[in-house]
Structures are given as structure tokens and as C-alpha cells.
Amino acid sequence: MNNAPVTRASLLLRIRDCADTQAWRQFVQLYAPVVFAYARRRRIQEADAADLTQEVLRSVANSVGKFDYDRTRGSFRSWLFAVTRNKLMDLHRRQSFGPSTGGNSVQDLLNQQTAREEVDAWDQEFRKQVFSTAADHVRDEFETFTWQAFWRTAVDGVKPAEVARELNMSVGAVYIAKSRVQARLKEHIHELTEDD
């Protein structure tokens, strides 16, 4: 699969084109886990969370080409959050039996939860997914040993001298590998989060 990174703005443009399956795949790859993780944290069982994820992403895909999503009104991230929250409430309405004024329904818990906490959790998940997607994309641009040198030092936190021994590289080469991958990652993360 070609993982050539595209910026998210162009991703949003490109998914309007039904024939552009690559853009759609990347879109799913980037956002499905965010929605899923959010639902799971709201104690939605796995199968329902998966359903919700599909529903949210399909509805987003449908709306992106229409007027529902207006970039001037806010970031895509917060719009996706709003859509997810609404669908989650729909889900509870559908699943709960009887009118949902019952004091301790999940929906009410949702409502009571402080908005700040919610948004923070969402943002955190969003960032995490952007980072890991960026890492997936960028990995292919580097030699395996360059990537390993980066990962062992920058992510695993192993000392460069030790990594150099592990990988049979010079310490200088490890430093350079690490900095090159980091710089590229940072750049790509920026591309993915341009308008947040």
C-alpha cells in the first residue's frame, strides 16, 4: 500500500471523490481509532463501539462534501468530536428503553461530565492517533536501521551509545538517524494537524 502522506486538508477534499480509495483508506486509518477509543472510554462495548465508529465516519464522509462541515467555523477535530458525541447519544437513545429522563442513564452521565475533561480526553486520543499515523507514514521513508536507531533512542529511551552497539553503528550515526527521523515526524505531524 502506498502510504505517501497527504495533508489532512487535502485528505478532507479528496475523500469527497468516491474513486479516491487511497484517501479514504488514510482517512479511516487516521480517524476510526480516535472515535473507537473515545467510545470505549465511555464504556461502550466493543461491538457497539465498532458500529458507532462506522456510523460516525460514514456520516462525516457524507457531510464533508456538503455544508455540515465548514472549516471557517472551527477545526475538523472539534467537528468530528461533535459528530461522535451526537451519535453516541443517538446510540443511547436507541438502546435505552423508555424516555431518557431516568436520572442515572449513561447519557445523563455523559451530560454531567465536565466538558473540559471530555475535550481533553478527546484531544489526547486525537494527538496519539496523529502521532502513530505519522509514524506509520514516515517509517517507510527511512532505512530500517535508521528507524530502529531513532525508535530505540527517542521512544524507548535507550542511551545512544548502547543503541550504537546494538545496531553496529557509530554513535554519531545514531544521533543523526534520530534527529533526521524526529525532524521528519515533526514535519508530518504538523501537516496532519494543520488547522487545529
Binding site: T21, W24, R25, V28, Q29, A32, P33, F36, R40, E46, A47, A49, A50, D51, T53, Q54, L57, R58, R127, K128, F131, S132, A135, A154, V155, D156, G157, L185, K186, I189
Partner: peptide
Amino acid sequence: IAAQLADKSPIEPALAQAMDALQ
């Protein structure tokens, strides 16, 4: 960034299925 990358959890099967279905 490093903390988030290190924290990468495996994709749950239900999510993987949903992503496949979506794609």
C-alpha cells in the same frame, strides 16, 4: 510525542473489522 508513540496499543479486533468494513 515519545510517550504517545510508546503507548501504542494493538488495534482491537472489533476496530480492525470496522476499519476493514469502512475501507
